[in-house]
Amino acid sequence: MTNADAEKLANLYLSWNERRAANQNDPIVFLRTLFQEWEQMSTEVPGVWYETVDGPVTGIRAVPIGADETAAVLHVHGGGYIGGSSSSHRKFAGHLAKAIGVPAFAVDYRLAPEHKYPAQLDDVRAAFEWLVAGGVSPSRIIVAGDSAGGALATALALQLRDEGGAGPGAVVALSPYYDSEGLGDSFESNVSSDIMAGARGRAGIHANVSMFIADESQRTSPYVTALRADVTGLPPHFLTVGSGELLVDGVRRFGDMLRDSGIPVEVEVVPNMQHVFPLMAGTAPEADATVRAAAEFVHTHVPPHQREVTNAPA
Protein backbone atom coordinates (compact mmCIF):
# COMPACT_ATOMS: atom_id res chain seq x y z
CA MET A 1 0.00 0.00 0.00
CA THR A 2 1.20 3.51 -0.70
CA ASN A 3 1.26 6.23 1.88
CA ALA A 4 -1.80 8.47 1.58
CA ASP A 5 0.43 11.45 0.78
CA ALA A 6 1.81 9.58 -2.25
CA GLU A 7 -1.66 9.58 -3.81
CA LYS A 8 -1.20 13.28 -4.50
CA LEU A 9 0.75 12.59 -7.69
CA ALA A 10 -1.65 9.87 -8.83
CA ASN A 11 -4.55 12.28 -8.37
CA LEU A 12 -2.71 14.94 -10.36
CA TYR A 13 -2.22 12.53 -13.26
CA LEU A 14 -5.87 11.47 -13.14
CA SER A 15 -6.79 15.14 -13.37
CA TRP A 16 -4.44 15.59 -16.34
CA ASN A 17 -6.05 12.68 -18.16
CA GLU A 18 -9.52 14.11 -17.64
CA ARG A 19 -8.53 17.58 -18.78
CA ARG A 20 -6.59 16.26 -21.80
CA ALA A 21 -9.65 14.30 -22.91
CA ALA A 22 -11.76 17.44 -22.68
CA ASN A 23 -9.27 19.68 -24.49
CA GLN A 24 -8.19 18.74 -28.00
CA ASN A 25 -7.12 22.23 -29.12
CA ASP A 26 -3.44 23.20 -29.09
CA PRO A 27 -2.36 19.96 -27.34
CA ILE A 28 1.29 20.99 -26.96
CA VAL A 29 0.42 24.32 -25.35
CA PHE A 30 -2.09 22.59 -23.10
CA LEU A 31 0.40 19.90 -22.04
CA ARG A 32 2.95 22.56 -21.17
CA THR A 33 0.39 24.18 -18.91
CA LEU A 34 -0.27 20.85 -17.20
CA PHE A 35 3.41 20.04 -16.73
CA GLN A 36 3.91 23.29 -14.83
CA GLU A 37 1.68 21.78 -12.13
CA TRP A 38 4.53 19.49 -11.11
CA GLU A 39 5.69 22.51 -9.12
CA GLN A 40 2.80 21.88 -6.72
CA MET A 41 4.09 18.45 -5.76
CA SER A 42 7.15 19.54 -3.74
CA THR A 43 7.23 21.66 -0.62
CA GLU A 44 9.33 24.76 -0.22
CA VAL A 45 12.73 23.96 1.26
CA PRO A 46 13.87 25.83 4.39
CA GLY A 47 17.41 27.15 4.14
CA VAL A 48 17.55 27.27 0.33
CA TRP A 49 17.60 30.50 -1.67
CA TYR A 50 17.04 30.88 -5.41
CA GLU A 51 18.33 33.11 -8.17
CA THR A 52 17.62 33.28 -11.89
CA VAL A 53 20.48 32.58 -14.28
CA ASP A 54 21.05 34.24 -17.64
CA GLY A 55 23.92 32.37 -19.21
CA PRO A 56 24.37 30.44 -22.42
CA VAL A 57 21.08 28.87 -21.33
CA THR A 58 18.73 30.18 -18.69
CA GLY A 59 17.47 28.58 -15.51
CA ILE A 60 17.20 28.82 -11.76
CA ARG A 61 19.96 28.26 -9.25
CA ALA A 62 19.04 26.71 -5.87
CA VAL A 63 21.64 27.32 -3.16
CA PRO A 64 21.42 25.77 0.31
CA ILE A 65 22.87 27.83 3.17
CA GLY A 66 26.44 26.64 3.73
CA ALA A 67 26.57 24.84 0.38
CA ASP A 68 29.79 23.27 -0.84
CA GLU A 69 30.57 25.50 -3.82
CA THR A 70 33.26 23.11 -5.11
CA ALA A 71 30.50 20.85 -6.45
CA ALA A 72 27.17 21.35 -8.18
CA VAL A 73 24.06 19.57 -9.37
CA LEU A 74 23.04 20.20 -12.96
CA HIS A 75 19.30 19.49 -12.91
CA VAL A 76 17.56 18.62 -16.17
CA HIS A 77 13.75 18.75 -15.98
CA GLY A 78 11.36 16.25 -17.48
CA GLY A 79 8.30 16.85 -19.63
CA GLY A 80 8.68 14.55 -22.61
CA TYR A 81 11.10 16.99 -24.29
CA ILE A 82 8.09 19.20 -25.07
CA GLY A 83 7.37 20.78 -21.66
CA GLY A 84 8.51 21.30 -18.12
CA SER A 85 10.85 24.06 -16.98
CA SER A 86 13.20 25.16 -14.25
CA SER A 87 10.21 26.71 -12.47
CA SER A 88 8.15 23.49 -12.56
CA HIS A 89 11.10 21.69 -10.91
CA ARG A 90 12.49 24.54 -8.79
CA LYS A 91 11.42 23.18 -5.42
CA PHE A 92 12.54 19.64 -6.22
CA ALA A 93 15.94 20.98 -7.29
CA GLY A 94 16.07 22.72 -3.92
CA HIS A 95 15.36 19.47 -2.08
CA LEU A 96 18.08 17.65 -3.98
CA ALA A 97 20.55 20.49 -3.53
CA LYS A 98 19.96 20.58 0.22
CA ALA A 99 20.23 16.79 0.61
CA ILE A 100 23.55 16.72 -1.25
CA GLY A 101 24.75 20.00 0.25
CA VAL A 102 25.70 21.72 -3.01
CA PRO A 103 24.14 24.34 -5.30
CA ALA A 104 21.84 23.08 -8.05
CA PHE A 105 21.40 24.71 -11.45
CA ALA A 106 18.00 23.82 -12.94
CA VAL A 107 18.46 24.47 -16.63
CA ASP A 108 15.89 25.55 -19.21
CA TYR A 109 16.64 23.85 -22.51
CA ARG A 110 14.90 24.43 -25.84
CA LEU A 111 11.74 22.39 -26.26
CA ALA A 112 10.38 20.21 -29.04
CA PRO A 113 8.69 20.21 -31.44
CA GLU A 114 9.81 23.76 -32.24
CA HIS A 115 13.39 22.69 -31.57
CA LYS A 116 14.41 19.20 -32.62
CA TYR A 117 17.15 16.95 -31.25
CA PRO A 118 20.00 17.64 -30.61
CA ALA A 119 18.99 21.16 -29.45
CA GLN A 120 18.07 19.87 -25.98
CA LEU A 121 21.33 17.96 -25.53
CA ASP A 122 23.28 20.95 -26.86
CA ASP A 123 21.72 23.17 -24.20
CA VAL A 124 22.41 20.72 -21.39
CA ARG A 125 26.01 20.49 -22.63
CA ALA A 126 26.23 24.31 -22.62
CA ALA A 127 24.97 24.39 -19.03
CA PHE A 128 27.58 21.79 -18.00
CA GLU A 129 30.33 23.85 -19.63
CA TRP A 130 29.00 26.99 -17.93
CA LEU A 131 29.41 25.31 -14.54
CA VAL A 132 32.94 24.21 -15.45
CA ALA A 133 33.82 27.73 -16.62
CA GLY A 134 32.58 28.97 -13.25
CA GLY A 135 35.17 26.86 -11.47
CA VAL A 136 33.48 23.53 -10.77
CA SER A 137 35.52 20.49 -11.78
CA PRO A 138 33.61 18.16 -14.13
CA SER A 139 34.13 15.28 -11.73
CA ARG A 140 32.32 17.27 -9.03
CA ILE A 141 29.22 17.90 -11.13
CA ILE A 142 26.24 15.62 -10.54
CA VAL A 143 23.87 15.57 -13.51
CA ALA A 144 20.35 14.80 -12.32
CA GLY A 145 17.17 14.55 -14.33
CA ASP A 146 13.71 13.05 -14.42
CA SER A 147 11.89 11.36 -17.29
CA ALA A 148 13.18 12.91 -20.54
CA GLY A 149 15.59 14.89 -18.37
CA GLY A 150 16.99 11.65 -16.97
CA ALA A 151 17.63 10.43 -20.52
CA LEU A 152 19.38 13.72 -21.31
CA ALA A 153 21.53 13.39 -18.17
CA THR A 154 22.86 10.04 -19.33
CA ALA A 155 23.11 11.24 -22.94
CA LEU A 156 25.38 14.06 -21.79
CA ALA A 157 27.66 11.59 -20.01
CA LEU A 158 27.75 9.42 -23.15
CA GLN A 159 28.53 12.38 -25.40
CA LEU A 160 31.35 13.66 -23.20
CA ARG A 161 32.86 10.18 -23.03
CA ASP A 162 32.61 9.72 -26.80
CA GLU A 163 34.37 13.02 -27.40
CA GLY A 164 37.11 12.28 -24.87
CA GLY A 165 36.05 15.08 -22.55
CA ALA A 166 35.87 15.03 -18.78
CA GLY A 167 32.46 13.79 -17.70
CA PRO A 168 30.36 14.28 -14.57
CA GLY A 169 31.11 12.59 -11.28
CA ALA A 170 27.70 10.92 -11.09
CA VAL A 171 24.28 10.76 -12.72
CA VAL A 172 20.97 10.66 -10.86
CA ALA A 173 18.10 9.62 -13.14
CA LEU A 174 14.46 9.48 -12.00
CA SER A 175 12.07 7.46 -14.20
CA PRO A 176 14.38 8.06 -17.17
CA TYR A 177 13.35 7.65 -20.81
CA TYR A 178 15.88 4.90 -21.54
CA ASP A 179 13.55 2.75 -23.65
CA SER A 180 12.43 5.26 -26.27
CA GLU A 181 11.48 2.42 -28.59
CA GLY A 182 8.99 0.94 -26.12
CA LEU A 183 10.48 -2.56 -26.33
CA GLY A 184 10.14 -3.57 -22.68
CA ASP A 185 7.42 -5.95 -21.52
CA SER A 186 6.31 -3.34 -18.97
CA PHE A 187 4.82 -1.36 -21.86
CA GLU A 188 2.16 -4.09 -21.82
CA SER A 189 2.13 -5.34 -18.22
CA ASN A 190 1.87 -1.87 -16.64
CA VAL A 191 -0.74 -0.31 -18.90
CA SER A 192 -3.31 -0.32 -16.09
CA SER A 193 -0.96 0.78 -13.30
CA ASP A 194 0.80 3.73 -15.01
CA ILE A 195 -1.77 6.48 -14.61
CA MET A 196 0.10 9.14 -16.56
CA ALA A 197 1.11 7.16 -19.64
CA GLY A 198 -0.52 3.75 -19.45
CA ALA A 199 -3.51 4.50 -21.65
CA ARG A 200 -1.19 5.55 -24.49
CA GLY A 201 1.28 2.70 -23.99
CA ARG A 202 3.90 2.06 -26.66
CA ALA A 203 2.11 4.35 -29.10
CA GLY A 204 2.41 7.20 -26.60
CA ILE A 205 6.17 7.06 -26.16
CA HIS A 206 6.62 6.52 -29.90
CA ALA A 207 4.59 9.65 -30.67
CA ASN A 208 6.34 11.65 -27.96
CA VAL A 209 9.83 10.80 -29.21
CA SER A 210 8.71 11.44 -32.80
CA MET A 211 8.09 15.08 -31.81
CA PHE A 212 11.62 15.23 -30.37
CA ILE A 213 13.72 13.68 -33.14
CA ALA A 214 14.24 15.18 -36.58
CA ASP A 215 13.92 11.83 -38.37
CA GLU A 216 13.29 8.19 -37.45
CA SER A 217 16.93 7.20 -37.86
CA GLN A 218 17.70 9.14 -34.68
CA ARG A 219 15.40 7.00 -32.52
CA THR A 220 18.09 4.32 -32.22
CA SER A 221 20.88 6.78 -31.45
CA PRO A 222 22.37 5.95 -28.03
CA TYR A 223 21.86 9.61 -27.11
CA VAL A 224 18.11 9.13 -27.65
CA THR A 225 17.71 5.51 -26.56
CA ALA A 226 20.26 4.69 -23.88
CA LEU A 227 19.58 0.96 -24.23
CA ARG A 228 21.44 1.19 -27.55
CA ALA A 229 24.58 2.57 -25.87
CA ASP A 230 27.96 1.11 -25.10
CA VAL A 231 28.09 2.07 -21.43
CA THR A 232 31.82 1.51 -20.96
CA GLY A 233 33.40 4.36 -19.03
CA LEU A 234 30.21 6.02 -17.87
CA PRO A 235 30.10 7.61 -14.41
CA PRO A 236 28.22 6.01 -11.48
CA HIS A 237 24.44 6.09 -11.86
CA PHE A 238 21.64 6.23 -9.29
CA LEU A 239 18.41 5.09 -10.95
CA THR A 240 14.91 5.12 -9.51
CA VAL A 241 11.54 4.23 -11.00
CA GLY A 242 8.08 3.23 -9.83
CA SER A 243 7.25 -0.46 -10.10
CA GLY A 244 4.05 0.29 -12.02
CA GLU A 245 5.59 2.48 -14.72
CA LEU A 246 5.78 1.66 -18.40
CA LEU A 247 9.47 2.60 -18.23
CA VAL A 248 10.48 0.20 -15.45
CA ASP A 249 11.88 -2.59 -17.65
CA GLY A 250 14.08 -0.15 -19.54
CA VAL A 251 15.49 1.26 -16.30
CA ARG A 252 16.17 -2.23 -14.94
CA ARG A 253 17.85 -3.26 -18.18
CA PHE A 254 20.07 -0.18 -18.29
CA GLY A 255 21.05 -0.81 -14.68
CA ASP A 256 22.06 -4.35 -15.66
CA MET A 257 24.11 -2.97 -18.56
CA LEU A 258 26.00 -0.67 -16.20
CA ARG A 259 26.52 -3.42 -13.62
CA ASP A 260 27.79 -5.86 -16.24
CA SER A 261 30.32 -3.25 -17.36
CA GLY A 262 31.58 -2.66 -13.83
CA ILE A 263 29.97 0.78 -13.50
CA PRO A 264 28.79 1.57 -9.95
CA VAL A 265 25.01 1.66 -10.06
CA GLU A 266 22.09 1.61 -7.67
CA VAL A 267 18.70 0.71 -9.11
CA GLU A 268 15.71 1.48 -6.92
CA VAL A 269 12.32 0.13 -8.02
CA VAL A 270 9.76 1.52 -5.59
CA PRO A 271 6.48 -0.38 -5.22
CA ASN A 272 3.25 1.29 -6.34
CA MET A 273 4.87 4.60 -7.24
CA GLN A 274 3.92 6.72 -10.24
CA HIS A 275 6.09 8.40 -12.85
CA VAL A 276 8.72 10.76 -11.34
CA PHE A 277 7.37 10.21 -7.83
CA PRO A 278 10.42 11.90 -6.20
CA LEU A 279 8.88 15.22 -7.28
CA MET A 280 6.72 14.83 -4.16
CA ALA A 281 9.76 15.66 -2.01
CA GLY A 282 8.67 17.09 1.32
CA THR A 283 5.19 15.63 0.89
CA ALA A 284 5.49 11.85 0.55
CA PRO A 285 7.88 9.71 2.63
CA GLU A 286 8.67 7.55 -0.41
CA ALA A 287 9.94 10.62 -2.26
CA ASP A 288 11.97 11.83 0.71
CA ALA A 289 13.55 8.39 1.12
CA THR A 290 14.63 8.41 -2.53
CA VAL A 291 16.14 11.90 -2.24
CA ARG A 292 18.13 10.73 0.80
CA ALA A 293 19.25 7.57 -1.00
CA ALA A 294 20.35 9.58 -4.02
CA ALA A 295 22.34 11.95 -1.80
CA GLU A 296 24.06 9.04 -0.04
CA PHE A 297 24.98 7.51 -3.40
CA VAL A 298 26.35 10.83 -4.63
CA HIS A 299 28.40 11.34 -1.48
CA THR A 300 30.06 7.96 -2.07
CA HIS A 301 31.22 8.96 -5.54
CA VAL A 302 31.49 12.75 -5.23
CA PRO A 303 32.63 13.12 -1.60
CA PRO A 304 31.74 16.30 0.27
CA HIS A 305 34.53 18.84 0.33
CA GLN A 306 36.52 18.63 3.53
CA ARG A 307 36.99 22.14 4.82
CA GLU A 308 40.25 22.85 6.57
CA VAL A 309 39.91 23.43 10.28
CA THR A 310 42.46 25.68 11.94
CA ASN A 311 42.92 24.96 15.62
CA ALA A 312 42.98 27.98 17.88
CA PRO A 313 46.31 28.51 19.68
CA ALA A 314 46.52 27.00 23.15
Score class of each variant (00 low, 15 high):
310 T>Y: 08
157 A>N: 11
104 A>V: 09
205 I>R: 02
222 P>W: 09
84 G>N: 12
54 D>K: 13
60 I>M: 09
21 A>D: 14
291 V>K: 12
47 G>R: 13
190 N>Q: 10
89 H>R: 11
8 K>T: 15
288 D>R: 07
69 E>I: 10
125 R>V: 02
304 P>Y: 11
251 V>I: 04
130 W>A: 13
116 K>P: 03
26 D>H: 13
236 P>M: 05
83 G>P: 01
91 K>R: 14
278 P>N: 12
240 T>F: 09
285 P>G: 00
219 R>D: 00
90 R>I: 03
266 E>P: 00
157 A>G: 04
76 V>Q: 00
17 N>K: 14
236 P>L: 05
157 A>F: 08
216 E>D: 15
124 V>R: 00
244 G>M: 03
84 G>K: 10
151 A>D: 14
192 S>Y: 02
146 D>W: 11
136 V>P: 01
247 L>K: 10
301 H>I: 13
170 A>N: 05
308 E>N: 10
4 A>C: 02
87 S>H: 12
31 L>I: 12
99 A>E: 15
220 T>D: 07
236 P>F: 13
120 Q>H: 11
98 K>R: 15
44 E>R: 14
306 Q>I: 04
27 P>N: 08
218 Q>C: 07
268 E>G: 00
199 A>H: 10
178 Y>V: 09
133 A>N: 14
134 G>N: 13
267 V>L: 14
215 D>V: 07
64 P>V: 12
72 A>C: 08
212 F>Q: 11
234 L>G: 02
40 Q>L: 12
242 G>E: 08
34 L>W: 07
